[in-house]
Amino acid sequence: MRSAPDYLPDFSHIYIEEGAEKYPLTQDILQRFPDAVQVTISDYKTAFNRSGQDFIQQKKSMKLILAVKKPPFIYESTDILQDAGFDNFVYTTPLLNCLYNCQYCFLQGMYPSANLVAFVNEDDFFNEVRNAISHRENRDQPLVLSISYNTDLLAFENIIPFCKHWIEFAANQPNVLIEIRTKSALFNALKNIDPNRNVLLSWTLSPKVVVEKYEWDTPPLAKRLKAVRQALARGWNVRLCFDPVMIIPEWQKVYSRFLDDVFSALPADQIYDTVVGVFRMNKDFFQRARKREPRIDIYYKDYELKDGVLSIAKDKRAEVKAVISEKLDQYLEKKKIDIWNS
């Protein structure tokens, strides 16, 4: 966890890709950080893809890179993601990397840098999404777009109001459902925005012992639950994500009690749906993440490898499904429970 008094604060430096400076979002951000050292670069990859970077050290003092995204803007879903039964499931990446430091996250091994890249050409993203909506395969379903896949956008909202901009975009778009997944407690950043049926706010919730052990720098469970209550009270669609379910000592009891606590704090009948998953990671990301921080016990458990993805054994996955489903069944209709079991 970050505790580094000798280190510069996050965003002490902002790298600006040539061409990005003319975007209004760039100017907004620079005004929010008047004391930041500005460094101009020709391409964001000059900073982001440098060899010899130390992801773990950079997490102690993250920098911001402002850039103009080039195509593609939209990516097809993979087996690792949960599409919750939707056919037209895709994702986009307005922001690369995350403020948080969850030890089980694929971001620990995916990028060469822990610095954040914010793409400032939002209109280009929106135009591509409009295009994707009109060309979606299953016309009977909306385009389901995850915008917070490689990041936690809501956690970043007070720095760059990406969520606000995407919500405003979604409000005028038929046939789209935008998912904003988060561990943030920062609902206040959205409290003055009207709820929008084209937007799904998804909160990842974990037992306290899992939050403390693995979800470094994230808000505690109690604060996330409060944010969920606030969102529900305002009328938002809210999904609950229990992902990943971590196989810790007495995990069955821990998660059973945890789910009871969640549904005593939240009105189950107002929940849009839930998704459940287990630890899984691309094998290359896993090896890189382990090399970066070998002291995390996650990297020494027994996993199965299938199609390039490491996950817990099939029989264990089945057990998770059985235990969690049984508990969720007490609170929710079956159609509101989606379990990743690839």
Binding site: D6, L8, V37, V39, I41, Q57, Q58, S61
Partner: peptide, 27 residues
């Protein structure tokens, strides 16, 4: 120094400034 440009070939090298040195910075 926060940015080094090799004038011969245009390559750019970026040190990572992580610690509070209190020093003014320059390319």
């Amino acid at each position: 120094i926060n940015k080094i440009t090799d004038e011969k070939n245009g390559k750019v090298w970026l040190p990572d400034a992580l610690l509070k040195t209190g020093l003014p910075e320059m390319p």
